[in-house]
């Protein structure tokens, strides 16, 4: 059984996530439009597509910070620990959110309810297939699990409170903050899928595969720098390697 406080916590998480998603949706008109031009060689159009993707990423960062700040206990951490956790979990949560928006029927990921992108669109935005293919593989894999909103929200909370992130100081507090979400996910799954004992470990393994994806993403960031495709300041702060 789910304890009342667990049920309440899950409902609050889902409501928070909906609120953060809605805010981004309202900002949608501000994003540089995705160019309709079909000319793949046009430098201007390619630059615009890259800008479109990076602006969607910036909105996602803002959503993730909003969500983290509302997680009970997060603001009790030192500012440095908050930054250490967000710095590494941001890309992983973006990948979780992308997988949640993956539509197998059109093999596309839909951002902000009406922007759907397939692999080719990701490539047109300047990303390399060494990164695009694992994103879609992961999204397909997550889609096969048919997780609901509560499971995604709990996975994101668990992902944020990962005590083994680089530069985290107060490991004990981060672990203590993570535990209630792990327990809630475990109970929630046992109630929702009583006959599937493997679902919980399968979900935790998705968190492990996010680590691999994160390193593939770092290679992508490095490749962008080689192509002198500059990341906007906020993304550069989080992902670029600053000497």
């Amino acid at each position: 059984q789910l304890a009342p406080e667990q049920l309440e916590m899950i409902e609050k998480l889902v409501a928070m996530q909906k609120q953060c998603n809605k805010r981004s949706f309202l900002d949608r008109p501000k994003v540089t439009p995705w160019p309709q031009s079909q000319d793949p060689q046009n430098r201007e159009v390619r630059q615009q597509r890259f800008a479109h993707f990076t602006e969607l990423a910036i909105m996602s960062v803002q959503e993730i910070v909003d969500f983290a700040k509302q997680l009970p206990g997060f603001l009790e951490l030192t500012r440095e620990d908050q930054i250490a956790l967000l710095k590494t979990s941001t890309i992983e949560i973006m990948l979780l959110e992308s997988s949640r928006r993956y539509d197998p029927a059109i093999e596309s990921i839909t951002f902000l309810k009406d922007f759907s992108y397939n692999k080719e669109d990701f490539a047109k935005a300047g990303l390399q297939f060494e990164f695009i293919n694992p994103i879609f593989e992961f999204s397909k894999g997550m889609n096969d699990l048919h997780l609901d909103e509560a499971e995604y929200a709990l996975l994101i909370a668990i992902n944020i409170f990962s005590a083994d992130r680089p530069n985290v100081q107060d490991h004990d507090l981060v672990e203590r903050l993570q535990q209630p979400y792990v327990d809630a996910l475990h109970s929630y799954i046992r109630i929702k899928r009583p006959n599937d004992q493997l679902m919980f470990p399968r979900m935790l393994m998705k968190l492990v595969s996010l680590r691999t994806l994160s390193s593939v993403h770092s290679e992508q960031v490095f490749a962008l720098r080689l192509q002198d495709k500059k990341l906007p300041p906020l993304l550069s702060e989080i992902w670029d390697v600053h000497e």
């Binding site: 910070v65 700040k69 908050q82 930054i83 967000l86 710095k87 300041p233 906020l234 702060e237 989080i238």
Partner: peptide, 16 residues
Amino acid sequence: PQDHQLLRFLLDTDEK
């Protein structure tokens, strides 16, 4: 160090 200025700003801002 004064790094992650923008991230610090997002964490400090309380939009509600």
